[in-house]
Structure formats: structure tokens, C-alpha cells
Design a protein around this nucleic acid. Sequence first.
DNA 1: ATGGTAGACGATCTA
Length: 255
Amino acid sequence: MKIVTWNLNSIRARLERFTEWLAENSPDVLLLQETKCEEHAFPKEAIEDLGYNVVIHGQKTFNGVAILSKYPIEDLQCGLPTYTEDPQARYIEAVTNGVRVASVYIPNGQDVGTEKYAYKLSFLERLRQHLAHTLQYEEAFVIGGDYNIAPTDLDVADPKAWHEEILCSTAERKAFNALLNLGYRDAFRIDHPAEKIYSWWDYRSQAWPKNEGLRIDHLLLSPQATDRLEITGIDRTPRGKEKASDHAPVWCLIG
DNA sequence: ATGGTAGACGATCTA
């Protein structure tokens, strides 16, 4: 079962490229972030035509997450149960083909020390609380998303430039590690323990041609999902095309 | 300290 996480940076701006990639790669499940529209504006039919069921937690202009699956989608949950007062659409969870999956768009945080940074850290704490709770189900659970955190300097092309900057600060990395310390694993690092490869390249400053990226998109696996993990990867091909998202899809294969 | 680009939307805000 192939599961992909991808921050599309607008599903409508990306529709042609995205459906093209879907037809070529045909993953079983997609966990999408930054769809950037309300449900009525989401191009559901074009995706359903390719054989996917679609569930959406959207909002106007910003954020928005979705789950696509070739299998029926059950037990839908929009928003973190531990953060029901969050006005932003950043979390969706469901069960499909016997696997619990979630798509999460963790706040960017803007700059260290800002109000948005505080919101990011509080969102991460609410996520930690929820993931602590779901462990008791002892299910295969895959939490894919744009975490907006490069877990270590190995995940950063230019660690000096990013030292204690947003996406790389100590408090953010501690919050990410707190998720791992619950018992979840960063899927990509299981079979690529030392590879310098990234999932996001800023549109600015020619970051893509210079390969000045960061690995901030992750698939976290519960112990039961970890036991079933076969391989993972990051597909950089779509990032090099016209009208690309600034993020690349990250995938894993669960047996 | 600033600016670089992209998307939504219609002036800026978010990233």
C-alpha cells in the first residue's frame, strides 16, 4: 500500500500537474496539505475520475488538508480532537484499507519569537497530546504532512544559514522529537539514515536549481505501521516541472 | 536588515 504526503500549494493551481502525476504513479493513498480552498471549490470530480475517494477539511485562501484513497474512507475526523477551537484547517484523519492515516499542515511559524511561532509550538503540543492518545489503539497509523520542521542539520542543505532560524530552531526540533519519543518513527530515516535529500525548496533565490532545500515533509509511523514498512522515498521529479509546488511528494510503502 | 517568488485575491497576507 503506497501512501504519499504532498503539500501542493493550492490544489486548483496544481490540478493539471497533480492529476498527471497521479495517473503516472497511482499511489493508494494521498495526504495533501495547503489545498487552499473550501470544499465547494475543490476539484473533486477530476480526482474521483482517476479512481479516488476524497475527503476534505478546507478553508478559504489558506491552509486546507485532504485525504484521497482508492479504498473506502471511514471514521473521518476533521481537526485535532485536542484542539477543537483551532479556527485553521490543518488536520484530517480517517481509516482506509485498515490503516489509520492523517494529513497535517503544521503552522509555518513565520519567525522565531513571533505570535505565529507561539501558535506553531502550541499546535505541536496539541498534536503530541492526540498522538499520545491514539497509541493506545495499537493500530497501523501513518501521519503524513508538512511539519515545517527540519529535524536535524542533516535535513538542511545549508545548516549555517538556517542556524536557529524558523523551521530549524531548537524548540521546534524538540517538539518534533517529542512526537518520536512517544514511539512514532520518521519513516524516511529508517531506510535512508544518512542521505542529504530535501522535500522543500523556496521559490525565491533560485533555491531549486542550487538544491538549497530542507526536509520538512514527513511520514510518521506508529509502531504497528513501522513493523509493516517496506521502503520510502522522495520524488523530486515534479519539483523540476513548470508550475510546480515548492514541495516534493514523500512516499512510503506499507506491506 | 532586506529581498528574493508564488498563490489567493483584489490590499495585503501567508509562506
